[in-house]
Each structure stands twice: as structure tokens, then as C-alpha cells.
């Protein structure tokens, strides 16, 4: 049933534009990575974009050198800590509620206004990542809402074939969500053990099926021929601890080193993001 509280448009389903590639020359095969494997993309972080919220932040990850590849754009607002409603049961800790939502225009396909399972899933990952960082017992009986709008997803506009990329895009989005939420939490003045930041690393195969896979940080799915595995890590640098680990892919268990190096690179990416985060927060204090 259509949601009568929104304007739903025509009754017949509409089709996203289908592009004609027969008459136009074929697009170039997957672009190659424009950065060295150990370099993350530049990111821009700013706090205080929503003045009426307790804390807020905006993160933009630079568009890579190839045109048409959109960068990730995230906006996060934190409301709280505030008292829980009277009906809520007693909690000795702060109750976190995380909410991640793609804007309808954020991805290749138009997103609806209701959260889909992948957005809920992102919310849970984010909650796990932040819960480890927040000193939760300093706010009993209170709650905090962390809301992230993904204004623009990290998707290539040109490569239109679905290569199962959404999963990897989700990882990139999660990495950004963790970083931007940490900035907004700091902006809201909520005590954390450390600043947490997200980092993504992937095992990619660039030159055909038989080539030796390499580990790269901050991957853009469209820049690689095939992604074998990837992981997203939320990392606290001063404590050297991982609050959230999400690995996905297909790795032989006989070679645990491959997994370990993937995690190491993920941590490295997270450290890079953390540098930007700390720099941004330091700037705000000045």
C-alpha cells in the first residue's frame, strides 16, 4: 500500500532511464586506481553544520581523479544526551540509537523514504562501533540519537552494470559513517575513551583472473576488476583497540596472513581518517 502521508507520484511504476549503449561508443573498461595502494582519498570534515543539534558534522570524501565518480557525502547530527521517556525502563548507561539513511537521490537507483534492511544493518554496525568508544556509564537514564544522512553514496555513475558492488559500497559508507559520527559526538561533548574512525581495506585482483591479488586501502569498487574480500574497521588509535570489525569476502582459511594483512591495512586506513578527525576537532577548539 502506498504511503498516503507522502506524495507518491503516478500509480504506474516508473523506470529509471535505460541508457543506449549500442549507438554510443563503448565505455572504457574499468578504470584503474589512480592512487598508490596505501593512500586513502582526501577527506573534508566539518563540525557544526546543524546548529540546533547538540553536535553535528559533515564529511565529504574527495571525488577521485576520474570524472563521474562521486565522492561520499555524509551529514550527521547528534541529539542528546537527554532524559529517556518515562515509559522507558531504567538503564544504567546511555542508550544509543543510531539511524543511517540514504537520501532518495544518493544512489544510482532512487531510494525510498523507509529504511531498507541494508540501512538498518549499517545502523547496527555503527552502533557497535560507537558503543565501544563512548563512556556510557557517565549518563545513566539518558539517551542519545545519532542520525546520519548519506547525501551522496560512493557510487560510480558511469559503470552501470551491477557488479554486486553495493556490498562494497556499503563498507565504504560505513567507514565514513563511523568517522563522521565520532566527529559529531565530540562536537556534542559526549565523553569518549578515544576518537574512533573507520577505515576500509580490500583484497583486489586487477589484472585478470590469474593475477596475484593485492591489498589496497580505501578501495573504489569501480576502479578494480574484482574485489575478493574487504573489511571495514573501527579503530581507537591511542588504545590500539578495534570496536567494530566487518569482514566479507572469500578467503582460503589456509592462508591466515592474507586476512591479517587485510585487517592491518584497514587499521592503517582508519588511522588516516583519524588524523583528519583530530585535525578538524583541534581546529574547532582554536
Amino acid at each position: 500500500m502506498a504511503d498516503r502521508r507522502r506524495i507518491n507520484g503516478p500509480a504506474g511504476a516508473t523506470i529509471p532511464p535505460v541508457f543506449d549503449d549500442v549507438s554510443t561508443p563503448k565505455l572504457k573498461s574499468p578504470k584503474t586506481r589512480s592512487r598508490p595502494p596505501n593512500t586513502t582519498r582526501k577527506m573534508y570534515l566539518k563540525t557544526g553544520v546543524t546548529p540546533s543539534a547538540s553536535g553535528s558534522a559533515y564529511l565529504e570524501i574527495e571525488t577521485s581523479a576520474t570524472p563521474g565518480v562521486s565522492g561520499l557525502k555524509l551529514s550527521c547530527s547528534v541529539h542528546g544526551p537527554r532524559s529517556l521517556p518515562r515509559s522507558a525502563p531504567f538503564s544504567p548507561h546511555i542508550v544509543l540509537s543510531t539511524h543511517v539513511k540514504y537520501a532518495p537521490f544518493a544512489t544510482k537507483q532512487r531510494r525510498g523514504y523507509l529504511r531498507d534492511p541494508s540501512e538498518r544493518d549499517l545502523g547496527i554496525h555503527l552502533e557497535a562501533a560507537l558503543r565501544g568508544a563512548i563512556i556510557a556509564d557517565r549518563w545513566p537514564k539518558s539517551g542519545v540519537d545519532i542520525i546520519i544522512s548519506i547525501v551522496e553514496g560512493d557510487q560510480d555513475r558511469e559503470t552501470s552494470l551491477l557488479q554486486g558492488d553495493e556490498v562494497w559500497d556499503m563498507m565504504n559508507a560505513l567507514g565514513g559513517c563511523i568517522t563522521v559520527a565520532a566527529a559529531a559526538l565530540a562536537d556534542a561533548g559526549i565523553d569518549c575513551v578515544d576518537t574512533v574512525a573507520g577505515g576500509v581495506a580490500a583484497l583486489v585482483q586487477d589484472a585478470g583472473e590469474d593475477s596475484i591479488p593485492t591489498v589496497v586501502v580505501d578501495p573504489i569498487p569501480s576502479e578494480h576488476e574484482k574485489i575478493l574480500a574487504a573489511c571495514c574497521i573501527a579503530y581507537l588509535p591511542t588504545r590500539d583497540e578495534v570496536t567494530n570489525l566487518w569482514f566479507r569476502g572469500d578467503l582460503p582459511t589456509s592462508d591466515i596472513d592474507l586476512y591479517t594483512s587485510l585487517v592491518e591495512k584497514g587499521i592503517q586506513a582508519s588511522k588516516n581518517a583519524n588524523r583528519v578527525l583530530v585535525g578538524c576537532l583541534a581546529e574547532t577548539i582554536e
Partner: peptide
């Protein structure tokens, strides 16, 4: 088809 989303934490 215009739609407006306010519920993004844009205000408390």
C-alpha cells in the same frame, strides 16, 4: 513528485 523530509535530525 515533490517530497520533503524533515526527519533527519535537522532540529531536536
Amino acid at each position: 513528485v515533490p517530497n520533503i523530509e524533515l526527519a533527519t535530525g535537522s532540529a531536536p
